[in-house]
Design a protein around this nucleic acid. Sequence first.
DNA 1: ATTGAGATTGAGACTAAGTATCTATTAGAG
DNA 2: CTCTAATAGATACTTAGTCTCAATCTCAAT
Lengths: 148, 148
Amino acid sequence: MENPRDIFIAHLRRKGLFLTRERRLILEAIFSLRKHFDFDELYDTVKKRVGRVSRATIYRTIPLLIDSGLIRDVFRGTSGTQYEQVRGLEHHDHLLCVSCGSYIEFKDERIERAQQEVCKKHGFVSVDHKLGIRGYCRKCALIKRVKA
Amino acid sequence: MENPRDIFIAHLRRKGLFLTRERRLILEAIFSLRKHFDFDELYDTVKKRVGRVSRATIYRTIPLLIDSGLIRDVFRGTSGTQYEQVRGLEHHDHLLCVSCGSYIEFKDERIERAQQEVCKKHGFVSVDHKLGIRGYCRKCALIKRVKA
DNA sequence: ATTGAGATTGAGACTAAGTATCTATTAGAG
DNA sequence: CTCTAATAGATACTTAGTCTCAATCTCAAT
């Protein structure tokens, strides 16, 4: 019950849904992609493997995968939503370079713990959180300084 | 040089832009709104006061206000972006109730400090950050429990 | 106060992410 | 194998946000 396929099937069962050929192929496609991906990358990959999929099917399957805990959406830029594979339970946050678009993942236990305390204090039951720090990565910060 | 108008003008000057009637009215409209607002609320308010504004003008002015540090965008839901007035420098983050849509603002120094350290460690120059915790507020968490 | 170059506005066309609808097809329980 | 609800595909639709361009306005220099 550890592999993505079983997790996905279990989730579908729970909701009385079928594991269709398309859903299976979308799931497989995701794990052939790099960790972060967007709609178009997923769509193109599935299409390349199957020959034909409807965009609608991809859009309909994404929330199922999110609810299964297999992927999550990380940020929404001007051009669509970015998703990432969730492997295991290692939650993490992101440093996002506004200049070159690269990102760095990080995890800080102090931040996680402090968040839990904040929730507790407000009687808030957290289901998800997202911390994104926007700025300039090391390389771009240097270029910027040279320019200025 | 403390009031929003002066800050805005200074920013425009720096970029060689004019303080037009429309920009002034948009700025004034914002400060008549509640702290959090979206595009439509702003658009309607300006229209009510002036009689006529182009949606494009509002859309063009928003980034100017963001760059001036007078407002910031807090989260982007399925229906547009939410903005908030920035008063002074008090940065804060949000607890977002996925059930009733309410939000709670909070600030935690430990989180802020830890973030700075993370940036430092990666040679990252932060310009902005956003922490949003999604979940159930006290009231909705109770209702949920009763239902389940 | 006038003027002129460049900035800006308004109106609407346009783009694109995501949703909704409808019909033919498919999954899988019995 | 059969039957029914679920599903896929195709495409129309919605809507946040951007782009375009002619008409208008701003303000620094006169």
